[in-house]
Amino acid sequence: MPILPRSPVNKALAAIFAIWVIAMNLQALGIIATSLEPWIGGVPFSLFFMWAITALATIAGIATYAIWGKDFERNAEKALKEEM
């Protein structure tokens, strides 16, 4: 079974997390976004990149709660009341 119920939105969220994982690994390996130039908003590009990609993952995390939260709450409460 998938980690979350299959739906286009959940697939999009999973894709964002996958991009985040790949991007952070590539940057850690020194393959992408290692240099300071160009500076964006007073921040070197290397730092801007990791913050931007992590911001995306953070938004996806909060969106998971916002989108899936109600269903999970309802289903979990129902499942807890039932006899297994």
Binding site: M1, P5, D71, A79, E82, M84
Partner: peptide
């Protein structure tokens, strides 16, 4: 239990 609680 997960089938019910996570996937409904």
């Amino acid at each position: 239990l997960f089938s019910k609680a996570i996937y409904g």
